[in-house]
């Protein structure tokens, strides 16, 4: 599902944003070999400090499986600066109804080949639909997107071919990059939806939005941890052969309980069973 994170809600989604920067490091710094700065396993550049909007694809476990970044073309953006070589040093397009999209990527390691839920093509289509619908609802008519030739092929194959390009394909580090134009129209969205067989709303609902905030993810990981701990304690009890061993497990459980690391105290009945 898709979550939109911008400067207004970013403080609630710092974990997702951090996972997104890690995915970008893995894709652009690693797999694609782009000339990007990776520090501490995260790819972050100066445009991330300009309050962009991110369209983030998240799976049920809270992993970031896809992402893209949007900036207005009326102000500073990548084609007006870092990517100006693509335009052959011609000034970039500037329009209130044109957004620039950059750093479009999906997690090919975590996603499966083929089609259907959990596949690369499904995640790609979902991110496309999410980006186009978010832009359209913000009054945006077109997107200029900086991509590599592989992504260009992916777009064409998924019934989402750019209607044109600006500038030309130039070498950026190890790989070429180009700027494609996409119209934010219902026709295009419908084509992608038809192709990928995604009729449903791709955006996270209120419950999911709450689940993927920092607080939501923390409580989730805590509850998973607690369940594991309880399983472990039960196993220790079952393995205990002497009264002393049972007492040791009992003390450990009490200790974890007093620190709030398990939800309940050790059950009395069980202790007596073992001791008997």
């Amino acid at each position: 599902m898709i979550i939109i994170v911008d400067a207004l809600n970013r403080h609630k989604y710092t974990t997702l944003v951090d996972r997104m920067f890690q995915l970008r490091a893995q894709v652009f710094g690693g797999r694609l070999g782009w000339d990007v700065q990776v520090e501490n396993g995260r790819e972050i550049d100066q445009y991330d400090s300009l309050d962009p909007a991110y369209v983030i694809g998240v799976n049920a476990a809270g992993d970031v499986v896809s992402c893209v970044r949007a900036l207005q073309t009326t102000g500073p953006h990548m084609l007006s600066d870092v990517f100006s070589a693509i335009l052959g040093d011609e000034p970039p397009l500037r329009s209130p109804t044109l957004w620039e999209s950059t750093r479009f990527c999906v997690d090919t390691k975590r996603l499966a080949r083929g089609r259907g839920p959990g596949s690369i093509s499904d995640a790609t289509a979902e991110l496309m639909i999410g980006s186009l619908e978010y832009a359209m609802s913000s009054g945006i008519d077109d997107i200029v997107t900086v991509i590599d030739p592989v992504m260009d092929k992916v777009l064409k194959r998924s019934n989402n071919a750019p209607y044109d390009y600006v500038g030309s394909t130039v070498q950026m580090g190890k790989v070429p990059a180009l700027a494609a134009l996409l119209d934010c129209t219902q026709e295009r969205i419908d084509r992608v939806r038809d192709f990928a067989n995604i009729p449903h709303d791709v955006f996270a609902g209120p419950e999911e939005l709450a689940r993927f905030t920092d607080a939501g993810l923390l409580s989730q990981s805590n509850s998973v941890g607690r369940e594991l701990t309880v399983d472990y304690l039960w196993a220790q009890f079952d393995a205990a052969k002497t009264v002393d061993e049972v007492a040791a497990v009992y003390r450990m459980w009490m200790d974890l309980f007093s620190k709030g690391l398990v939800e309940s105290a050790p059950p009395e009945s069980l202790t007596s069973r073992h001791v008997a």
């Binding site: 397009l93 500037r94 329009s95 044109l98 008519d141 209607y163 134009l181 119209d183």
Partner: peptide, 17 residues
């Protein structure tokens, strides 16, 4: 030899500038 929409996107940019 470009699409209507390409003309439109450049015109919009020209108007803005």
């Amino acid at each position: 030899s470009i699409s209507d929409r390409t003309v439109e996107v450049h015109l919009r940019s020209a108007r803005t500038k």
